[in-house]
Amino acid sequence: MASNGLKFALFLGCVIPNRYPFIERATKAVFGKFKIELIEMEGASCCPAPGVFRGFDIDTWLVVGARNITIAEELGVDIALMCNGCYGSLLEVNHTLKHDKEKKKMVNEHLAKIGREFKGTAKIRHVIDIMYHDIGPEKIRNRTKYGRKVPLNLNLAVHYGCHLVKPRDIRPWDNQVENPTFFDELVEISGCKSLNYKDKFMCCGAGGGVRGAFKELSLDYTREKLENITAAQADAIITGCPFCHLQFDLGQVEVNNIFKDKISAPFSIPVLYFTQLIGLAMGMKAEELGMIRSPDLKGVPPFTPVKPILTKIGESA
């Protein structure tokens, strides 16, 4: 049982369980080390993705989002999630339905058909929120002090993404929005430095349905970010969202391909989900953080090799 009393229902979404399962693996492993209990949400569905489904029909988005929240409400715990998009959806759906009686009534009329009811008893927490507010950078730093013999000493390009931070009014970042520092504080551990790079807070390009319908447009955003990150000489990109992660990981390969005449050299910056970095700093094995490739499978992430990071920090592949 959780020794610090922290217990959450883990909402998986789509991209993590079905494309980037190592994010799930690393987060579960690291949270376990901090004695945070994560229980399964059986039968959860797509959040639904704010960039697409909210744009098609807001009412459907509210109804399906509410259904996901009721799963946690029945378990009597708050939701922990690992994706900016799911955060944008569930946080907004939860807030809307808690404050708009008419919308709540509409949603419950639909949910009644499957025997569910939205009550508004759960909170929605991004894992960055949990790590920052419930654990805290100082505790994390203490845990990493003796985690590794040699500090990581990496130069990191932190990518906040968009829905983590905006709109600011219902988010827990104490008004930080144009120049936030909370995510940097979490990763400046074990000698790592979070770099300032041009347009650090710019969108990765994946969201809003853009990657789906206009892939090249989304990749042009990513190309710009990769250029800025490369110019800052970062060792790795740190993400807090699987869609941003995908955009920088698979997207990096795609950018190298379609923009090969536009860029000076192909990009090759490893992309890490932040719990992987925290795990490394705590001395956990690369394998249990999902950083070792499967030798047989093709067409699966990581598409941009992370091996260079492991080599740099002296871990065996």
Binding site: G51, G55, C162, G205, G207
Partner: peptide, 8 residues
């Protein structure tokens, strides 16, 4: 549909 809903 070109907007990536970044909320800036």
């Amino acid at each position: 549909w070109f907007c990536s809903t970044c909320y800036t």
